[in-house]
Simulated scan of single mutants.
Amino acid sequence: MKPTLTLLGMGLAMALSGCFAARQARIDSDYSYTGNFRRYRTYEFVTGEGLAADSSKLGEAVRDAIRTRLKVQGYKSNKRRPDLLVNFRVFEGDMKFRGYLQEDIGRWVKEEKVEDEETPPDNRQGYQPQRILLAEGTLLITLIDNRTNRAVWNGYASGVTVPKGPQGELVLRRSVRSIFDQYRVFTEGYLEGSQMTEN
Protein backbone atom coordinates (compact mmCIF):
# COMPACT_ATOMS: atom_id res chain seq x y z
CA MET A 1 0.00 0.00 0.00
CA LYS A 2 2.79 2.42 0.94
CA PRO A 3 4.72 2.07 -2.40
CA THR A 4 1.48 2.74 -4.30
CA LEU A 5 0.83 5.93 -2.32
CA THR A 6 4.44 7.02 -2.81
CA LEU A 7 4.21 6.50 -6.59
CA LEU A 8 0.85 8.26 -6.70
CA GLY A 9 2.28 11.18 -4.70
CA MET A 10 5.31 11.43 -7.00
CA GLY A 11 3.10 11.36 -10.10
CA LEU A 12 0.85 14.07 -8.68
CA ALA A 13 3.87 16.22 -7.75
CA MET A 14 5.27 15.89 -11.29
CA ALA A 15 1.94 16.79 -12.86
CA LEU A 16 1.48 19.80 -10.60
CA SER A 17 5.01 21.08 -11.15
CA GLY A 18 4.50 20.78 -14.92
CA CYS A 19 1.20 22.61 -14.56
CA PHE A 20 2.82 25.40 -12.55
CA ALA A 21 5.68 25.70 -15.07
CA ALA A 22 3.17 26.20 -17.88
CA ARG A 23 1.00 28.59 -15.82
CA GLN A 24 3.92 30.86 -15.01
CA ALA A 25 4.63 31.29 -18.70
CA ARG A 26 3.50 34.42 -20.53
CA ILE A 27 1.07 33.36 -23.25
CA ASP A 28 0.20 35.67 -26.14
CA SER A 29 -0.38 35.74 -29.89
CA ASP A 30 -0.82 38.00 -32.87
CA TYR A 31 -2.12 37.56 -36.40
CA SER A 32 -1.97 38.99 -39.90
CA TYR A 33 -4.94 40.94 -41.22
CA THR A 34 -4.30 39.29 -44.60
CA GLY A 35 -5.00 35.84 -43.17
CA ASN A 36 -8.09 34.30 -44.73
CA PHE A 37 -8.88 32.22 -41.65
CA ARG A 38 -12.29 31.06 -42.92
CA ARG A 39 -10.59 29.38 -45.89
CA TYR A 40 -8.11 27.25 -43.94
CA ARG A 41 -9.04 23.60 -43.45
CA THR A 42 -5.82 21.57 -43.75
CA TYR A 43 -2.28 21.73 -42.39
CA GLU A 44 1.14 20.11 -42.47
CA PHE A 45 4.30 20.61 -40.45
CA VAL A 46 7.31 22.46 -41.84
CA THR A 47 10.38 20.28 -41.88
CA GLY A 48 13.74 21.80 -41.13
CA GLU A 49 16.29 22.14 -38.40
CA GLY A 50 15.94 22.30 -34.64
CA LEU A 51 12.96 21.00 -32.70
CA ALA A 52 10.74 21.04 -35.82
CA ALA A 53 12.93 18.29 -37.30
CA ASP A 54 13.51 16.67 -33.93
CA SER A 55 12.34 13.07 -33.82
CA SER A 56 12.99 12.86 -30.08
CA LYS A 57 10.18 12.50 -27.59
CA LEU A 58 10.15 16.26 -26.95
CA GLY A 59 9.75 17.16 -30.64
CA GLU A 60 7.09 14.49 -31.09
CA ALA A 61 5.27 15.67 -27.94
CA VAL A 62 4.95 19.18 -29.44
CA ARG A 63 3.79 17.85 -32.84
CA ASP A 64 1.31 15.48 -31.20
CA ALA A 65 -0.14 18.26 -29.00
CA ILE A 66 -0.52 20.55 -32.06
CA ARG A 67 -2.15 17.74 -34.10
CA THR A 68 -4.59 17.03 -31.28
CA ARG A 69 -5.58 20.67 -30.91
CA LEU A 70 -5.99 21.31 -34.63
CA LYS A 71 -8.11 18.17 -34.99
CA VAL A 72 -10.40 19.40 -32.19
CA GLN A 73 -10.82 22.64 -34.16
CA GLY A 74 -11.74 20.80 -37.39
CA TYR A 75 -8.40 20.91 -39.25
CA LYS A 76 -7.14 17.87 -41.16
CA SER A 77 -3.60 16.86 -42.01
CA ASN A 78 -2.76 17.08 -45.72
CA LYS A 79 0.77 16.37 -46.93
CA ARG A 80 0.17 17.30 -50.58
CA ARG A 81 -1.43 20.76 -50.58
CA PRO A 82 -2.09 22.01 -47.06
CA ASP A 83 -3.71 25.39 -46.49
CA LEU A 84 -1.47 26.04 -43.48
CA LEU A 85 2.12 25.14 -42.72
CA VAL A 86 2.90 24.74 -39.03
CA ASN A 87 6.30 25.68 -37.68
CA PHE A 88 7.48 25.67 -34.07
CA ARG A 89 10.68 26.43 -32.27
CA VAL A 90 11.99 26.63 -28.72
CA PHE A 91 14.28 29.58 -28.00
CA GLU A 92 16.66 29.53 -25.06
CA GLY A 93 17.46 32.65 -23.07
CA ASP A 94 15.65 35.98 -22.98
CA MET A 95 14.71 37.54 -26.29
CA LYS A 96 13.16 40.73 -27.60
CA PHE A 97 10.06 40.09 -29.66
CA ARG A 98 7.89 42.38 -31.74
CA GLY A 99 4.20 41.69 -31.24
CA TYR A 100 1.05 43.66 -31.97
CA LEU A 101 -1.87 45.03 -29.99
CA GLN A 102 -4.96 43.63 -31.69
CA GLU A 103 -8.57 42.76 -31.10
CA ASP A 104 -9.32 39.11 -30.33
CA ILE A 105 -8.79 36.90 -33.40
CA GLY A 106 -12.18 35.23 -32.81
CA ARG A 107 -13.93 38.56 -33.22
CA TRP A 108 -11.87 39.38 -36.31
CA VAL A 109 -12.77 36.06 -37.97
CA LYS A 110 -16.45 36.26 -36.92
CA GLU A 111 -16.77 39.64 -38.63
CA GLU A 112 -15.26 37.99 -41.74
CA LYS A 113 -12.62 40.65 -42.18
CA VAL A 114 -9.71 40.05 -44.56
CA GLU A 115 -7.37 42.68 -45.93
CA ASP A 116 -5.65 42.37 -49.29
CA GLU A 117 -4.03 44.59 -51.92
CA GLU A 118 -7.47 45.87 -52.96
CA THR A 119 -8.48 47.04 -49.48
CA PRO A 120 -8.62 50.86 -49.54
CA PRO A 121 -6.00 52.47 -47.26
CA ASP A 122 -8.74 54.15 -45.18
CA ASN A 123 -10.31 50.75 -44.46
CA ARG A 124 -7.11 49.03 -43.34
CA GLN A 125 -6.81 48.08 -39.72
CA GLY A 126 -3.18 49.08 -39.23
CA TYR A 127 -0.78 47.35 -36.86
CA GLN A 128 0.11 48.73 -33.43
CA PRO A 129 3.53 47.19 -32.73
CA GLN A 130 4.73 46.54 -29.21
CA ARG A 131 8.14 45.38 -28.07
CA ILE A 132 8.01 42.49 -25.66
CA LEU A 133 10.80 40.99 -23.60
CA LEU A 134 10.26 37.25 -23.51
CA ALA A 135 11.78 35.50 -20.53
CA GLU A 136 14.12 32.50 -20.57
CA GLY A 137 12.68 29.70 -22.70
CA THR A 138 10.08 30.55 -25.37
CA LEU A 139 7.99 28.11 -27.40
CA LEU A 140 6.88 29.87 -30.60
CA ILE A 141 4.29 28.35 -32.95
CA THR A 142 3.72 29.94 -36.35
CA LEU A 143 0.95 29.22 -38.87
CA ILE A 144 1.92 30.07 -42.46
CA ASP A 145 -0.50 30.50 -45.38
CA ASN A 146 0.88 27.96 -47.87
CA ARG A 147 -0.53 29.83 -50.88
CA THR A 148 1.01 33.22 -50.06
CA ASN A 149 3.94 31.88 -47.99
CA ARG A 150 3.18 34.50 -45.30
CA ALA A 151 2.94 33.96 -41.57
CA VAL A 152 -0.68 34.56 -40.55
CA TRP A 153 -0.53 33.71 -36.83
CA ASN A 154 2.10 33.54 -34.09
CA GLY A 155 1.43 32.08 -30.67
CA TYR A 156 4.01 31.89 -27.95
CA ALA A 157 4.67 30.91 -24.36
CA SER A 158 7.70 32.46 -22.68
CA GLY A 159 9.26 31.50 -19.39
CA VAL A 160 8.80 27.81 -20.18
CA THR A 161 11.32 25.62 -18.39
CA VAL A 162 11.56 22.22 -20.07
CA PRO A 163 13.02 19.64 -17.68
CA LYS A 164 14.40 16.36 -19.01
CA GLY A 165 12.29 13.25 -19.25
CA PRO A 166 8.51 12.79 -19.15
CA GLN A 167 7.97 15.99 -17.17
CA GLY A 168 9.47 17.99 -20.07
CA GLU A 169 6.98 16.41 -22.47
CA LEU A 170 4.14 17.30 -20.10
CA VAL A 171 5.28 20.94 -19.85
CA LEU A 172 5.49 21.25 -23.66
CA ARG A 173 2.05 19.67 -24.20
CA ARG A 174 0.47 22.04 -21.67
CA SER A 175 2.27 25.00 -23.23
CA VAL A 176 0.90 24.06 -26.68
CA ARG A 177 -2.62 23.85 -25.25
CA SER A 178 -2.23 27.25 -23.60
CA ILE A 179 -0.91 28.78 -26.83
CA PHE A 180 -3.78 27.38 -28.91
CA ASP A 181 -6.27 28.78 -26.41
CA GLN A 182 -5.30 32.06 -28.15
CA TYR A 183 -6.26 30.60 -31.55
CA ARG A 184 -9.97 29.95 -31.16
CA VAL A 185 -10.60 29.51 -34.88
CA PHE A 186 -12.62 26.51 -36.05
CA THR A 187 -12.80 25.49 -39.70
CA GLU A 188 -15.87 26.88 -41.45
CA GLY A 189 -18.96 24.77 -40.83
CA TYR A 190 -17.15 22.42 -38.43
CA LEU A 191 -19.13 23.38 -35.32
CA GLU A 192 -22.47 23.16 -37.16
CA GLY A 193 -21.52 19.73 -38.55
CA SER A 194 -20.46 18.35 -35.16
CA GLN A 195 -23.71 19.62 -33.58
CA MET A 196 -25.75 17.87 -36.30
CA THR A 197 -24.00 14.55 -35.70
CA GLU A 198 -24.70 14.82 -31.98
CA ASN A 199 -28.47 15.18 -32.53
Rank of each mutant, 00 (worst) to 15 (best):
L7W: 14
L85G: 07
N36E: 12
E136R: 10
N146M: 05
R124A: 01
M1N: 13
G11Y: 06
A151T: 09
N149T: 10
G59E: 06
V86Q: 02
N149I: 12
K164Y: 08
G99H: 00
L139E: 08
Y183I: 00
L191N: 07
R107Y: 14
Q73G: 06
A53K: 13
S194P: 07
P82E: 00
S29G: 02
Q102D: 05
Y75I: 01
E115L: 07
F45K: 02
Y43W: 03
G189C: 00
E117M: 10
W153E: 03
G155W: 03
K96T: 11
Q73S: 08
A21M: 14
E117F: 12
M95T: 03
R98W: 07
S29V: 05
P120V: 03
E115A: 02
L134V: 01
G48A: 04
S29L: 02
G106C: 06
A157M: 02
K71C: 04
V72D: 13
R131Q: 14
G99C: 01
V162W: 06
L51W: 12
K96F: 11
D122L: 13
G18I: 03
R81E: 15
R107D: 12
I27V: 07
E188N: 09
V152S: 03
R177N: 13
G48T: 04
V114N: 06
F97I: 03
D64E: 15
G126Q: 06
V152R: 04
T138Y: 05
G9I: 12
R124V: 04
L7E: 15
R81V: 15
M95W: 00
I132L: 12
G9W: 12
D104G: 01
R81P: 08
N78V: 00
V176R: 01
V171L: 07
R23N: 13
R67W: 01
G9L: 13
P129H: 00
R177D: 15
L133V: 12
N154A: 10
R89N: 14
Q182H: 00
R89G: 10
K57D: 14
R98V: 14
Q167H: 08
Y100F: 10
N36Q: 12
P166W: 01
D181S: 09
Q24I: 13
L70G: 00
K79W: 07
M196F: 13
R107T: 12
L16M: 10
R124K: 08
I66V: 02
S32G: 01
K113R: 15
E192F: 04
R184I: 11
T142G: 07
V114A: 01
L101F: 06
M196D: 10
G189L: 00
G159A: 03
Q73F: 06
S175A: 15
